[in-house]
Amino acid sequence: MKHIFKIMALLVAIAALWIGLLQTSMIPQSYALLLPIYSVVTLGCYGLLMVGVGLMQFPTCPQEALLLQQDIIEAKEFLQRKGVDVGSG
């Protein structure tokens, strides 16, 4: 099944649930009518929160850049001894 159909099926299920809620009037209709707006806002907030958390916890590795410099020096020495042209650049 194409992924878009999975997502559409999920949306249809949610819509059906919402219409069901409207019909049965388990909660006041004025609240029930606003539920879709609340869910869109919630989804947006979730997205922003995930981006924010991801940014704050963004894993960085400054020590790796230093280690790489050492590796480059080591590689250049070896390759120069073997006659590989790594002089410039």
Partner: peptide, 25 residues
């Protein structure tokens, strides 16, 4: 790059932001 033990070096804030946004999406 996004788990414990992984990481990125040399990206500015904008680059990190687009990367996280693209990933969440």
């Amino acid at each position: 790059r996004y788990v414990k033990g992984g990481g990125v070096h040399g990206w500015n804030l904008m680059r990190k932001l687009t990367s996280r946004g693209a990933n969440v999406l």
